[in-house]
Computed example of a mutant assay.
Amino acid sequence: MYVCSCFGVTEAQVKKHAEDGACTPRQIASQCKAGTDCGSCVRRIQSILGRGACPRREPADQGRPILAKLGGAELDGAEPAAAA
């Protein structure tokens, strides 16, 4: 069954792209152009992807050193500058 009539993209193709890691309609569009012309298929693509289809994303700062401010000096593990 066709999901995107503009580019002839089938439901099977959308599911294959999803299995390969595309989690959003935008990512599907970058793979096969579905949803980039008239846009009438975007909701259908969303329903195919469903909720929870994407792996949870890590918070943006996870794995990075946390910078703290102390007395106006940013610390990243270094000693704070002596106050004058």
Rank of each mutant, 00 (worst) to 15 (best):
A12N: 04
R56S: 12
G50D: 02
C4I: 04
A84P: 13
G72S: 11
G35S: 14
L67N: 07
G63H: 09
C32D: 01
K33T: 03
R57Q: 15
Q27V: 13
E19L: 02
G72M: 05
A78D: 09
G52Y: 10
E74H: 10
M1Y: 03
I48P: 11
I45Y: 01
R43P: 00
M1N: 04
A81V: 04
R44I: 02
A53S: 14
A78M: 07
I28K: 03
G35N: 10
A73K: 12
R64L: 15
Q62S: 15
M1F: 06
G8V: 09
C4S: 06
Q13K: 09
T24I: 10
S5H: 11
E74Q: 00
A60F: 11
A81Y: 00
Y2C: 10
G71S: 03
R43I: 05
A84L: 02
S47A: 05
G50K: 00
G52P: 01
A73D: 13
A22S: 08
D20S: 04
A29W: 14
S5V: 05
A78E: 11
L75M: 12
V9M: 03
D37P: 07
Q27L: 12
R51P: 15
L49Y: 04
P65L: 03
P59V: 02
A34K: 09
I45P: 09
C38I: 01
A83D: 08
Y2P: 15
Q31F: 02
R26H: 14
D76N: 15
V3C: 10
Q27E: 15
E19N: 10
Q27S: 02
E11Y: 07
C6G: 09
R64Q: 14
I28S: 06
A18C: 04
V9Y: 00
I66V: 14
G8H: 01
G71A: 01
P59F: 13
R64G: 02
G71F: 03
C32T: 13
A53P: 04
V14K: 07
A78G: 01
G50Y: 11
G39D: 09
C38R: 11
G39W: 00
T24Y: 13
P59A: 07
A29F: 03
P55E: 00
E74C: 09
T10Y: 13
G72P: 07
D61T: 02
T36F: 13
A83T: 08
G39N: 05
E74R: 08
R26W: 08
A53N: 13
C23I: 01
S30I: 04
D37Y: 04
A84G: 11
G8M: 03
D37Q: 06
G63I: 07
E19Y: 14
A34C: 03
Q62E: 15
A68T: 11
P65Q: 01
P55Q: 02
G72V: 04
F7A: 02
A22Y: 13
K69Q: 03
S5F: 11
A68K: 09
P80C: 04
E58V: 15
Q27D: 10
E11N: 10
G52H: 09
A22E: 07
